[in-house]
Amino acid sequence: MTEEIKSWLTDMDGVLVHEGYALPGAAEFIARLTELDRPYQVLTNNSIFTPRDLSARLAASGIKVPEERIWTSALATATFVAQQMPGGRAYVIGEAGLTTALYQAGYIMTDVDPDYVILGETRTYSFSSITRAIRLIRDGARFIATNPDPTGPSTEGPLPATGAVAALITKATGRSPYFVGKPNPVMIRAALNRIEAHSETTAMIGDRMDTDVLAGMEAGLRTFLVLTGSTTEADVEKYPFRPTEVRPSIAELIDRV
């Protein structure tokens, strides 16, 4: 017998919002979770923004999500390195979402003898910062990246993202990063810990098979693929794993809360 779903994890872009606009049923789904006091977290591989920034952006689209309900790859990365090496030193390529999370985790930002080179997403990747990262990694710094996404969305079209820049650094150093964000189940398990949830009674909603569904499946969650983002129903057949259910949008899951 399948246990009742008591907690929810959901991706943000492609599930709740698209280019700043709420997707069908998103505001109602979150409102339903809040009304029934269901534990939940909104997950994103985007490491640019802080949870406060993202909460404000969601509010502008009509979706009310408190910042403590938002779990980013930047927060997951900061939590991971703080557990691995408390009070460490890092050379960071990224924006406020990542640097703020690392400062709050007790990390020192430095370009001299860091324990880690941590690569996140930024709209201003510079040749000099990438060169510095390459040299530090070749000198022995451990290489971490917030997420493996090769591209990110913009109104003009795809932009190179963390995964693409990580590949450049790997080519130059021969060292592959440890990716903390989805599909790494580490990010999922950390989100579960935040809300004291169990994998047996938690579901993951996402729009991508290769990140959301894979991460949820590997963490032992039920998975719902919604078709309002990257993956089409035809795409599902290309993968050697399947979501628990496929739904047109998050609107079809409101009655499951």
Rank of each mutant, 00 (worst) to 15 (best):
V42R: 03
L43W: 00
T44Y: 01
T44Q: 03
T44W: 01
N45H: 10
S47W: 13
I48D: 06
T50F: 06
P51A: 10
R52F: 02
R52S: 06
R52P: 00
R52E: 08
D53N: 13
D53T: 08
S55A: 13
A56Q: 13
A56C: 09
R57P: 00
R57W: 05
A59W: 07
A59G: 07
A59E: 12
A60F: 05
S61V: 06
S61F: 05
I63E: 04
V65E: 07
V65T: 05
V65M: 09
P66N: 14
E68M: 08
R69A: 11
I70D: 01
W71E: 00
W71H: 10
W71Q: 02
T72P: 05
S73I: 02
A74S: 12
A74F: 02
L75C: 01
A76N: 01
A78I: 04
A78V: 05
T79V: 07
F80H: 12
F80M: 12
V81A: 03
A82R: 10
A82W: 08
Q83V: 03
Q84F: 15
P86A: 13
P86Q: 11
P86D: 12
G87R: 08
G88T: 14
A90V: 15
Y91I: 13
V92R: 01
V92T: 07
I93W: 03
I93E: 04
E95T: 10
A96H: 09
L98K: 06
L98M: 13
T100I: 01
A101P: 04
A101R: 06
L102W: 02
Y103F: 14
Y103P: 00
G106L: 09
G106E: 10
Y107R: 07
Y107H: 11
T110C: 11
T110W: 12
D111T: 14
D111F: 12
V112I: 15
V112Q: 15
V112P: 04
D115Q: 05
V117G: 04
I118T: 14
I118W: 11
I118E: 12
L119F: 00
G120I: 13
E121G: 15
T122P: 05
T122R: 05
R123L: 12
R123P: 02
Y125H: 03
S126C: 04
S126G: 08
F127S: 02
S129V: 00
I130L: 15
I130T: 11
I130S: 05
T131V: 08
T131K: 10
T131S: 14
R132V: 03
R132N: 04
R132T: 10
A133I: 06
L136M: 04
L136I: 05
R138S: 14
D139T: 07
A141I: 08
R142N: 05
R142M: 04
F143D: 07
I144N: 00
I144M: 01
